[in-house]
Design a binder for these strands. Sequence first.
RNA 1: GCCUCCUUAGCUCAGUCGGUAGAGCGUUUCACUCGUAAUGAAAAGGUCGCCAGUUCGAUUCUGGCAGGGGGCUCCA
Length: 672
Amino acid sequence: MSAPQNMTLIVDGEEKQVNTGTTGAELFFERRDVVVMRVDGVLKDLDQPLPEDAKIESVTIDSPDGLNVLRHSTAHVMAQAVQQLRPDAKLGIGPYITDGFYFDFDVEEPFTPDDLKTLEKMMLKIVNQNQKFARRVVTEDEARAAMADEPYKLILLDKSAEADEAGEGVNVEVGAGEITIYDNVDRKSGDTIWCDLCRGPHLPNTKLISNAFALTRSAAAYWLGNEKNKQLQRIYGTAWPTKEALKAYQERLAEAERRDHRKLGSELDLFSFPDELGSGLPVFHPKGGIVRKAMEDYSRQRHTEAGYDFVYTPHITKGHLYEVSGHLDWYRDGMFPPIHVDETRDAETNEVVKPGQDYYLKPMNCPMHNLIFRSRGRSYRELPLRMFEFGSVYRYEKSGVVHGLTRVRGMTQDDAHIYCTREQMKDELTSTLNFVLALLKDYGLDDFYLELSTKDPEKYVGADEAWDEATRTLAEVAEASGLELVPDPGGAAFYGPKISVQARDAIGRTWQMSTIQLDFNLPERFELEYQAADGSRQRPVMIHRALFGSVERFMGVLIEHYAGAFPAWLAPVQVVGIPVAEAFNDYMGEVIAKLKAAGIRAEADFGSDRFPKKIRTASKDKIPFVLIAGGEDAEAGAVSFRFRDGSQDNGVPVDDAVARIVEAVRNRDHQL
RNA sequence: GCCUCCUUAGCUCAGUCGGUAGAGCGUUUCACUCGUAAUGAAAAGGUCGCCAGUUCGAUUCUGGCAGGGGGCUCCA
């Protein structure tokens, strides 16, 4: 061995002189919070020696990279525990995910909730053993020998060349380049207790995992995410640098559960899903009906102002329409099966005398709007022609995907189709995007980013040249909006690219809301034409757009966004009047009458409950304005406000109170 | 569609090792008339998701179906 030589490194932006062969662990010896490092931009284990002139960045356990490494290492600890508990378990893949990790196993028997508890205890033991994560570079043959009992790992080795495309998480295990195995090594004996084929990097040791982890659920998942493959048993877990961070995460989940629109929908008596109707078919109760009507009324008003025409189309149609549109080719499985009618058979021979027709429930409105366009000759002077409809559509969603109001089988889209010339296309897209964003803001969502979904090479129709132009135009419009733009390659519908608006709700979750899709294809299929200024016949461009997506889904999102506490303009009951005692019923009644006369949804609570109980009831109903009247108020011709946050405003003259409420409703004030 | 768990009063949930069930909230009635999140009492309310099978007897055990939860796959 040669004598140590000095070399220069840039460590977190500062130049440093160290001996050659220095490892990250030595470099960050005094920084206990540093768990891995970036060497010239690449994440590496701390025990790796540092190359000369390298740029080194420390990665702490609470940084995004550090959290990923923590979670991936926790996944390894879990897998080790699983193979102790179930020696038959074969390893699938085990990557980190947002807020946690999972690991897939092929096991004889699925895991039970008790298994998860047992595993957590076993994991804690492993953590406390302070096993070392040791990286080992191996040849493919060595890897195959080490993984001889792990059939799925052998498949991964077969796939290593194409690992990056093989499926979610695969590149965590193997990748192009060298093959590595991570050994879990016992501190005292130096024995390898467990190992896994893995790219790493990992924490230096299991102790750093501490006790801030939990196994959250187990479920089946297809091997490599392919429905045709075997299902493995997946265990999900979460891991955090501190117990406090774990608690905060669990509190976030609890908050999401409190906001669940399915729970609030029944608590607030908004809607239900009667078994008698079938899966994914909601009914809206009177209170939910008010919310829905308020949503729809405002949407109609804004569409009228924005130059849309209102059309109406039936819920069912002969199948031919969807042959022309192509939907039967592409989405037959997602449609309810046909209703066969008008067939006539010979009374004696039972032979078909007249063939009959297949009618389908409509899964899309666009073909019908095309028929309206085509119902007579169109002039360029009519364009852009904007047709809007609250169109009810029915989709045969697979039984396992139906979910509350967000994924249903019968829904109402706020659907519009804009027919315009190619020259008008860009302006029309720009104004549509602005319209959509402005309207979403009025409903209380104001934190957006955009997603640009482009052609799926496996599933599309139409000329490449048209797709390119459409995609370019959408990208330009999206960029002009100034919002963040996320590419979604292959995410487009078969007939054209789209922009979708993703909105973040009050607790930071994102929802796909509005979509704007360009379509060069349906106008072709339906042979749509208009007469241009020069007398020639031209094909219009079609823009599909929906703001809510579906009214049902949007209501679900708003319920969760507002946690059921709707702004006054959407609230089923806007005001509840509570007299302090029965003696003030008449006075309260007059105030409520004034509010009703002003168009406010106001009710008085003259029930036999005591006063505090009535406050509690109004509070649980999330009423925006509770008005209270007692002796002091009546004498002064006033009324007292109690707001949802518990704050108050006492002694407000009745006329001022009415004006204030009317104002808040008219302004669609989000706070109330 | 696949894996897994679940389904008892309007809601949230106990319970029956196979002998047809109970609480809290809500509802109704009576009393109380009260100044900011639960007044007291009484009553009503259940073919224990549906259909079969086993059994003298099934809400309980078995199977099928429906509906739901959590995932996977899918989402025009």
